[in-house]
Nucleic acid binder design. Structure first.
Length: 639
DNA sequence: ACTTGCTTGGTTTTT
DNA sequence: CCAAGCAAGT
């Protein structure tokens, strides 16, 4: 009876899929690579596969590990899975980093970390490196570059004593110091999250075996974006690839500059000789001409596994290629089309302007503003990057984990309490000498007569205040945040400044977001791993964003702007291997569209207030004439 | 502590 | 060119 119900349930799940999708779902006995072209239903396959495993009785939810690259993808999978099965409990579903954080919390002691370790963000990392540089009398401006180098090393799973690293080089030396420093803070960065878990498994075989047995099914989304560390991590959990199912699209690998190794997906068959590859090539998103244009462009790449995306849908509109006289005119072309489409009942929210680099958004913003068209810039300044948000979060982190010295340092004098550089250097000295945190040091120093009376009192008051906040057992984050804002005088301080109003607005938004959390602990963990902006529902507005942040999204109409050599492909990416990645970016851009693609370029453009004439993007020549309509529409209202 | 003037760089961005 | 970040001065 039960078996029968299950069979029926599985049939229902599978009936909704095309043959290739079905094969990808049903195949459980081999290492599986699902090559999933744009718009071919990869999330559907992943979620159905999970449902199939559970409902078909092949495994229990807690035996399934599903890893995604971004929080957005994890969230979407959760939603879709809930729709499909109504229940997602027990499944280990999350980003590489959140899953590693979870594992590491359980076993922190085994790698010598405190269970309450803090997770650093890029800002924290940069601060620490600047600190180290300054101590060595070196220029702090090098910090960003060094951080980049260290991050890439960590993506490759190189520890600071790794033989591949020249320990005598500046970067190598800073890496060592940096690692020492963050360890002493009981903190880890994003790279560490993966590396520590690898270390944990390498040093504790029983633990590794336990997890190998536990996770019988490992599903990996966006496999083309994994870095070496993540690859090693996966191979530890599934050395033979049995139960492993990687889904990805080598043609959409656009994050190599961040350590992603497209080689991981290209090498899959070699890594797992018993493996099977399923290609999802049937596209359900874009009309024929759009798909044809995208396919022709990507066919120019050499390093790819190769697949041909097709559709049964109609050919639709051809890709519209336009030349503008200059950048101003280009924005006008887009705005006019947006207006036109909207009159034809295309929603603003179904349209997007995709740029190569952040600075390009301004021209389009100005134009849409002038036209009175609603828009939103996605990406750019992140909600959690705002000063006031980071301040209040630092308070909350310090309340949760008093030894979080970075948070301590951030807010000890915010609002101003008269605790300046001299007090801080005294604290640092003490902390270094005793091997304790700044908070602990403050507690000790306050009991001595080392500080001038006023500073001593300020510091004592500060410590007492934090302790006071801590005494609220398991505080609800909203309430705690409200108290912090009131009792520290943060709000009062804010009201004195001009931009205070908008900052207050942001804080209010944060308080609302905080209501989703029951405990401070869950919030702090969440905030460390999620740096995405709070998704505000702006309603029916046009999206402006970079090509990178458009990945995974879809729109009826897509405006691909600035297709000029030097802008796109970008100046710094004109060498061969980088050019392939730029081309993938073009592929990603075109395949975001369901019905309309407008590509434009400008003959003249002002860059850093200097007029330059760029050649049309070399990618334009790769668009076959049968799929495009070209119009040299050179207007100018500026000259 | 806050201002001022100088230098410098100005792809992509998630975790 | 313009914004940000920093060193030095009030």
């Amino acid at each position: 009876m039960i078996a029968e119900a299950k069979v029926w349930e599985c049939d229902r799940l599978l009936s909704d899929l095309n043959p290739e999708q079905r094969e990808a779902v049903v195949s459980l006995d081999k290492p599986l690579l699902v090559l999933s072209g744009a718009g071919t239903g990869k999330t559907k396959v992943l979620t159905t596969k999970i449902a199939y495993i559970v409902n078909g009785g092949f495994g229990f939810p807690y035996q399934i590990l599903a890893v995604t690259f971004s929080n957005r993808a994890a969230g979407e999978m959760k939603t879709r899975l809930a729709e499909l099965t109504g229940n997602v409990d027990g499944i280990w579903l999350g980003t590489f980093h959140s899953i590693c954080a979870r594992l590491l919390r359980f076993h922190a002691k085994s790698v010598g970390l405190d269970q309450d370790f803090t997770i650093l963000d890029a800002d924290d990392q940069l601060k620490i490196i600047k600190q180290i540089l300054r101590e060595s009398n070196l220029d702090g401006k090098m910090a960003a570059g060094i951080l980049h180098t260290i991050s890439r090393w960590k993506d490759k799973c190189y520890r600071c004593d790794d033989k591949s690293i020249d320990g005598a080089s500046l970067d190598g030396k800073i890496y060592k110091k940096y690692q020492e420093r963050i360890r002493s803070y009981d903190s880890v960065d994003f790279g560490d999250l993966i590396m520590y878990v690898i270390q944990l498994f390498a040093e504790n075989d029983d633990l590794l075996q336990k997890h190998r047995n536990k996770f019988r099914f490992i599903l990996v989304d966006e496999y083309q974006d994994t870095n070496m560390s993540q690859y090693f991590w996966l191979r530890m959990l599934s050395p033979t690839g049995m139960g492993l199912c990687c889904v990805g699209d080598d043609d959409q690998a656009i994050y190599s500059w961040r350590g992603a190794e497209i080689g991981n997906i290209l090498r899959f068959e070699k890594d797992f000789p018993q493996s099977k590859i399923v290609r999802l090539e049937r596209n359900y998103r874009s009309d024929g001409h759009i798909l044809g244009a995208a396919a022709s462009i990507i066919a120019h790449n050499k390093r790819r596994l190769g697949k041909t995306v097709w559709t049964e849908g109609n050919m639709g509109e051809k890709v519209f290629v336009q030349c503008a006289y200059n950048g101003f005119d280009e924005s006008k072309l887009a705005a006019d089309k947006i207006q036109f489409l909207h009159q034809r009942n295309v929603k603003y929210a179904a349209m997007a302007i995709l740029v190569r680099a952040g600075f390009q958004t301004r021209e389009f913003e100005e134009r849409l503003l002038a036209y009175g068209l609603p828009y939103r810039v996605i990406g750019g300044l992140k909600f959690y990057d705002r000063r006031e948000i980071k301040d209040i979060i630092a308070y909350m982190r310090l309340v949760h984990q008093p030894n979080d010295s970075l948070s301590f340092e951030r807010i000890v004098n915010i609002p101003k309490r008269g605790i300046g550089a001299s007090v801080m250097s005294r604290l640092h000295q003490y902390a270094a000498a005793t091997g304790t945190s700044l908070y602990q040091s403050a507690k000790h120093i306050v009991a001595t007569n080392d500080l001038r009376p006023s500073a001593k009192k300020s510091l004592a008051d500060f410590v007492a205040m934090i302790d006071n906040f801590r005494e609220i057992t398991e505080p609800q984050p909203t309430k705690l945040a409200q108290r912090i804002l009131d009792e520290t005088g943060y709000i009062t301080d804010l009201k004195k400044t001009v931009e205070g109003a908008s900052r207050l607005e942001n804080l209010r938004e944060l308080l609302v977001a905080l209501e989703d959390f029951d405990t401070l602990k869950t919030f702090v963990e969440h905030i460390s791993l999620v740096t995405d902006s709070i998704r505000t529902n702006d309603g029916d507005v046009v999206s402006i964003m970079t090509l990178h942040s458009a990945k995974g999204l879809e729109f009826d109409a897509v405006f691909l702007v600035g297709w000029e050599d030097g802008i796109f492909p970008h100046n710094l990416s004109l060498q061969d291997e980088n050019l392939e990645e730029e081309r993938r970016l073009a592929y990603v851009g075109i395949t975001r569209a369901k019905k309309y693609v407008f590509i434009s370029y400008a003959m003249n453009r002002r860059v850093y207030n200097q007029w330059q004439s760029n050649l049309p993007s070399r990618f334009l020549k790769e668009l076959p004439l049968e799929h495009i309509v070209s119009q040299n529409f050179c207007i100018s209202n500026m000259i």
